[in-house]
Amino acid sequence: MKVVIAVDSFKGSLSSLELGQLIENGIKKIYENAEVKKVPVADGGEGTVDALVEGTKGQFVDVKVHDPFMRLIDAKYGIMGNNVAVIEMAEASGLPLLKPEERDLRKATTYGTGELIKDAIEKGCREFIIGIGGSATNDAGLGMMQALGYKFLDKDGELLGYGGEIMGKVAEIDSSGTMDGLNKCRFSVACDVDNPFYGPKGAAHVYSRQKGADDETVEYLDLSLQKLALTLKEKTGKDISDIPGAGAAGGLGGGFVAFLDGELKPGIDIILQEVGLAESIEGADFVITGEGRIDFQSVMGKAPMGVSKMSRDKGIPVIAIAGCVADDAGAMHDHGLDAFFSTINYPVSLEEAMNKERAGTFVEKNVEEIFRLIKVCEIKYKSR
């Protein structure tokens, strides 16, 4: 029997790598000689760096960068075993780095995200996977590009500062000081929303209020994004105004396209391609997937959805495990997931359920029981 394990982390409890080992333990209690292949997966959000670096025997890199208000902080990113850099922009430019009373989108910058990219380029990376969820910014990536050597000037030729407040003032773009190697880099951007750059469904109107913006600031930022889009079209020849996903992370999605020819794709599609899941599941009898909670939202680009779709296309049965299975999780059955199971055996508090040791025991024991059932069915079928 061949089983492929491709499970996202149980956030705050068990990593993708830890879950893979626990599931393998459960399988081998019943099928001692089973071929078990563990493939780390994530959906491009929190945990992506850890899953890909640990699963490919890569390395973590610690670096000093600037937070959204240009304060020096410690951050990390990953370099996979194949020298692909994996970066979560929230490490340097994320909302959790700020206190609620500090949030100010006119001042907040993505400069630190650019510093993470710069460090990886200096270490020889030319391929990048960038997760852009959880931003505290709305500067369309201008700060990121400043860290990479770009200069932005106003109509009087004066050098502009940082933050969302400079977007509408950009009149000239000076790329003469960009760092060596940048033009040879390729960026795959994990983007799971389709918002345009500006407008009623754009970056400012949809996302800026949760980052501290009031109505006046929302309108100011939206107008600034419109002005910047016109400037970028004039100076770069790229019209990013209506590109799906350009409005993600305060316009950072659009910034990646305009300045770095970034490719915006669903996070799970990028990850599954990078880890080679399609090749790994060839000849598999079962695929095991899952995440901390399975519900109707799992259909919307989460790891189990991507794994299920790929496995279904190859006719391989898919079983999912989760710490919690919601009442509406049945929607997953229409998208390639054959069965799902909660790992919780009896009533416990959320704190107890997320305890690493307790959660690990639940996972291993329930996987063992699942494969006991599979073996019973196998024996019954063979006896006919």
Results as ranks from 00 to 15, higher is better:
3 V>K: 01
6 A>V: 08
12 G>M: 08
16 S>H: 07
24 E>I: 07
26 G>S: 10
26 G>V: 05
42 A>Q: 01
43 D>G: 06
45 G>E: 00
45 G>S: 03
46 E>M: 06
54 E>S: 14
57 K>D: 10
65 V>T: 09
66 H>K: 15
75 A>D: 11
76 K>R: 15
77 Y>S: 05
77 Y>N: 02
89 M>V: 14
92 A>C: 11
95 L>S: 04
97 L>N: 02
99 K>F: 04
99 K>M: 13
103 R>K: 15
105 L>I: 08
110 T>R: 06
117 I>A: 07
117 I>N: 02
120 A>K: 07
121 I>P: 02
122 E>F: 09
122 E>M: 13
136 A>I: 03
137 T>D: 04
141 G>H: 03
143 G>S: 11
144 M>T: 05
155 K>H: 10
155 K>R: 14
155 K>V: 12
161 G>E: 15
176 S>K: 15
176 S>Y: 06
177 G>Y: 12
181 G>N: 08
186 R>N: 13
193 V>Y: 03
194 D>G: 11
198 Y>Q: 09
203 A>T: 08
206 V>Y: 12
209 R>W: 06
212 G>N: 03
215 D>Y: 09
225 L>D: 00
236 T>D: 05
236 T>Q: 07
241 S>Y: 07
242 D>H: 12
242 D>R: 14
243 I>F: 04
245 G>C: 05
245 G>Q: 01
252 L>F: 08
276 G>F: 08
276 G>L: 10
278 A>T: 09
282 E>C: 06
286 F>Y: 15
288 I>Q: 02
290 G>M: 05
291 E>V: 11
298 S>E: 02
308 S>N: 09
317 P>R: 07
321 I>Q: 01
327 D>H: 12
331 A>K: 13
338 D>G: 04
340 F>Q: 05
344 I>K: 12
344 I>H: 04
345 N>E: 14
353 A>P: 06
356 K>F: 06
361 T>R: 13
362 F>K: 00
367 V>E: 05
370 I>R: 01
371 F>V: 11
375 K>E: 14
375 K>W: 05
377 C>T: 12
378 E>D: 14
378 E>L: 11
381 Y>P: 00
381 Y>R: 15
382 K>G: 14
